[in-house]
Structures are given as structure tokens and as C-alpha cells.
Design a protein around this nucleic acid. Sequence first.
DNA 1: AGTTAATTTCGATATTCGTTGAAATGTCGA
DNA 2: TCGACATTTCAACGAATATCGAAATTAACT
Lengths: 118, 118
Amino acid sequence: MDQLGAIAALGALAQETRLALFRLLVARGPEGLPAGMIADELEVAPSSLSFHLQQLVHAGLIAQRRLGRQLIYSAEYRTMSELLAYLTENCCGRGEVRVPFCDPAETLTEEEKNHGCC
Amino acid sequence: MDQLGAIAALGALAQETRLALFRLLVARGPEGLPAGMIADELEVAPSSLSFHLQQLVHAGLIAQRRLGRQLIYSAEYRTMSELLAYLTENCCGRGEVRVPFCDPAETLTEEEKNHGCC
DNA sequence: AGTTAATTTCGATATTCGTTGAAATGTCGA
DNA sequence: TCGACATTTCAACGAATATCGAAATTAACT
């Protein structure tokens, strides 16, 4: 991820509704949620939600797929990982940090598991 | 760090000049840089720089101290660590991630070392 | 005290952001 | 194909953001 991508992702997350929305999708997992359910959960007007969904899609933080007449949104864990990698590499001191991965499917290696970390 | 703090920090970093500014201070280390030098480096008008510095100070990402007639700004590594911790804990999949620390001076506590974390 | 240097604060302006309601799009089932 | 459902797009508006130049603050030097 380059600086422009990082700014886009940071800006997309720097808003109350969108951060809550992204957290909801992260918690939901790869299965995702249809827009209507998200609107109910977050108690935000459909057109307003649609606006925020576009922002997150544009930043690459969520993905959209159609299922019948509803649109399902799900977290793009990979992008979040890349954002964290960018921040740890560019905005942290002295490079003495580890880069976390976010994709639940992207399971830890055996070595990492044995490391017993966090 | 709570949700409000995270949004403030994310918003502060989600801007070209400010992200460059923060990266500059992170690279500079705890010593920091006076406003004038930052303005020269980033090629931004003094009054405009001052605006961005305030945003970062308000978000707790940088600190200000006076040295004679100049104001020195330096990165607050602790806040950045907390932001990364928030993102890994709340915006990553399944909680199977490790939290990095950012402060070059901030060595792990004995408890954390024994925990074998990061 | 008066002068200069470093920086911020203020006022004005153009741009972007977030919200809302109404209209449009796409999809399913009868 | 018609009607209902899920969602987006559009147009409009107020609020927040980013920028600049000019004036004000703070501190050092003489």
C-alpha cells in the first residue's frame, strides 16, 4: 500500500458511522451482511448508508456482491492488513515492530502459534 | 483508546500534509523538530502548517514544547501504539493478531516480556 | 524600551463531507 | 408484465476542512 492508499483507508475509517460499519462487517466475517440489515443495525437512513458504503468500497476496505435482490457487503481483511503494515512501517519508531495480519482465513503459521503471542 | 480517540487519530492522519508531517516527526525521533524547519521541509505556508500541527496535537499524535523562541514538535509514539492496538483488536479478524509497539524508547515491561508478546 | 525572529491566531474563501427526501435502478414472484 | 422489495443515485443544503495573507503573540538580543 502506498501513501495515497493509506490516506484513502484512513479517511474512510475516520468517521463514526463508517468505523462502526466496518467493525460490524469485520465481526461478521467473510459471509458479510446485506445493506438493509446494516442500516437496521446502525440505525442510519438507507441513502446515507449507501454513501458510506461507497466510501469504504472505494478505499478497498469492503467488498460488494449481489445475492438476489440484495447487496451483500463484507470486510476486505487484506486491505486492513496492508494499512496496518503501512502504519507500522512508516509511522512507528525504529522499525522494531511486527506486522499483524487481519484475515481470519489467513491463519497463523505453526511457528506463530507456538510463539504464543497475544 | 476508545472509539472517539481512534476516529480523531485516524482523521488526523488522513490528510496528505499531515501524514507526511507525522512521518517526518516519527523518523526524526523523540528529539523532534521546530515548526519552521517542518515548514521548510514540507514546503507549506507557516499558517497552514500551524493549522495541521494543531490537528495532530489535538489528536494526541504529536507533542509540543518550547525551546527559546521556537516551538518543537515531536511524535507521540504511545498514541500511535494505542491506535494500532485499537485497529488490531477491533478491526481485524478473529482477534488472532499481535499488537505492535511504536515507541523506540518504549521497551516492553517485564510482564510483557514474560508474556512473550510481540 | 525597541527591534527582530519564530510562530500562532484571525478573517475570508473555496472545497469537501454528511444528511435528507424524492426519483431511478435492478430483481424476484405472481 | 406487473407490482413489491432492496438499494442506489440525484439534487440540495448546512457543516466541517484546507488554504492564504495580514495582524497579533511570545521570546531573545541590543
